[in-house]
Nucleic acid binder design. Structure first.
Lengths: 336, 336
DNA sequence: TCCGAACATGTGAACGTACACATACCCGAT
DNA sequence: ATCGGGTATGTGTACGTTCACATGTTCGGA
């Protein structure tokens, strides 16, 4: 029966029990070469036996590397960001990094600055910005952040390292689809304009509508929620000067479907609706939603890849570009 | 023009510039009392001027406190866990803690152990287990984890510190609602049985059905997805020996709605459907879904509260209990 | 005027690891 | 036998902070 162990075992405890110096133990831990296999074996046995775990704080202190990545996100309760986040966490872990997350609740400048500072204080080695809002860039600039950053961008901002999901192309594809079906009066239910993604989708929509010389309906600015989509739908109804709506995400599209159905309109016979994201539920909405698929998992994965590459001194500056894909389902039909 | 600063300023740099000892700076940083206001002021000015940031690693090393909470989660892309996680992160941050997350992808024992070990290696001071699977408890036991744990439990497991959302009561309320509407043939579309939540909901359903002396249909075991709900709905159709379905979450309920509608059945006229969770979209499904609301935000908040309390030496052992609430919408109707 | 207590500040260590460098060991070629 | 060079291992130190303790400083009361 031993006495109560009050202190966690450290590298020197291991060394003593294995009959080697602490430096040898360190070498084993860091997979250094030029260690005799038998020695390594012995050390590993002692480690397993006494349940030694390297002290990350001590490591971080001496190497001045936190092995932590910061993620600045928003809307983490939504499918897209949540999925990306999940993949980022897994990818980072696989690479021996941990993740520190901040979820932006309000989008005022102050809280953004606070979040970025929080991450900086964690000594994160790199930063992933998910679904960035415009102000995030300002905050990063003002704080003169010097660590590598990857933004899951979408615009023409031309940050040196951004992972660009071509939202504009996606929005254009969605709009083009409606035009090809014969629709000439198309309304866009946009996202909040301080979101880069929302802005890009609106841009794509406007571009395509202009190219086709159609009348431009002023877009409605929403907040991504189904609730908003529902109310927007109800407000649109009295006018009936449109035959199709392109919503900036699937949730808002769902709200539209609800509002239209409730008032006796049939989708897609009377109105066509297109969403964006292709969340897993979209194909089970009624009618199944035509939408634009983004591969959130791939986005998260590439983001970590890019970031780690830059942290380890890579110099590649091209921006990765991911193309979203139009998924045609039952919520769109020919305008007759 | 100074030379390139290659090293981040430390506490001694601050001390020198402020004309005090490093210990005084430390005191300022830790809000120690008995510091002359003018001294504190001067130190703070220097800190702001040179952009000094305390080195967390050094702090953690000497205090042997990581100020990190571990979160063991699953399904983080789903609304419920994602919402809880988001709140947990915010609450922890507010308390000066950071969060280290692991998302369980597969539910095999090995990967659970790996995840727990990962968190332990981060030297987390406490552990929150979201939507736990049964095996998680075994893993925690086997690894003889000694840090405080709060599980967002739901069962009668009687862990000393669990935050119990009374899933059984929720499931009973949902089932009772259907019975009150005159339904006697009710099917339960359950979640995966290695999930404690899924098990508890099934339990509540079975209890209520037995209490009412109704015929017990064998529950279907699903995987939480709308896709599964859809296929389950299609498989149920040929039998038509039921008039109501209680799904263990809203997504599966959505799939059911899809399958039923597709085959010409009207919900709620021909079949009533109840979900669970009350995700924000549920009220915009067609028909708007009757479901059981859980306050995921509150859950996350209380979890952190409990955990921090225990970390700081609290000894309260009662389990907090949160009651979900039945939300009646259009997907349920009297059986005629 | 002096003393003691409360207050304010300073000094020496320790936390656990990795890095730079020093040393011991082994083997083959001279 | 001796030397050189690779391989294997050991020793000293630094990282930046907090803690325990030591010292200096101020102020009211005798």
């Amino acid at each position: 029966m031993e006495t109560e162990r009050v202190r966690a075992p450290n590298i020197r405890d291991v060394a003593r029990l294995a009959g080697v110096s602490y430096q040898t133990v360190s070498r084993v831990l860091n997979n250094s070469e030029s260690i005799r296999p038998s020695t390594k074996q012995r050390v590993l046995e002692v480690i397993a036996e006494i349940g030694y775990r390297p002290n990350q704080a001590a490591r971080a202190l001496v190497t001045s590397k936190s092995r932590t990545l910061g993620v600045l996100s928003a809307q983490t309760a939504h499918y897209g960001p949540a999925t990306s986040l999940q993949v980022i966490e897994a990818a980072a872990r696989a690479a021996g990094y941990m993740i520190s997350t901040t979820n932006l609740i309000s989008s005022d400048y102050e809280s953004i600055v606070e979040s970025v500072e929080y991450l900086i204080n964690q000594a994160v080695e790199g930063l992933v910005v998910i679904s960035p809002q415009v102000l995030v860039f300002d905050a990063i600039k003002e704080l003169s952040v010097t660590i590598p950053i990857v933004t899951l961008d979408s615009s023409g901002r031309k940050e040196p390292r951004s992972l660009s999901v071509d939202q504009i192309a996606g929005a254009k594809a969605a709009t083009r689809h409606l035009i090809d079906l014969g629709h000439t009066e198309i309304v866009h239910l946009a996202g909040p304009q301080d979101w880069i993604e929302a802005d890009a989708r609106m841009q794509g929509f406007l571009d395509e509508v202009n190219d086709a010389d159609l009348r431009t309906h002023p877009p409605l600015l929403g907040d991504w929620t189904a609730e908003f989509g529902y109310h927007a739908g109800r407000e649109l109804l009295p006018y009936r000067d449109f035959t199709a709506v392109f919503a900036a995400n699937d949730q808002m599209a769902l709200g539209l479907l609800h509002a239209f159905r409730e008032s006796g309109l049939d989708v897609p016979r009377d109105v066509s609706v297109v969403g964006f994201d292709d969340i897993p539920e979209a194909r089970h909405y009624w009618p199944p939603l035509t939408t634009v698929r983004q591969d959130f998992a791939q986005i998260g994965h590439r983001a970590v890849e890019l970031l780690l590459e830059e942290i380890s001194g890579g110099t590649r500056t091209e921006t990765a570009r991911i193309l979203p894909k139009l998924i045609v389902r039952g919520s769109t039909a020919f305008h007759t």
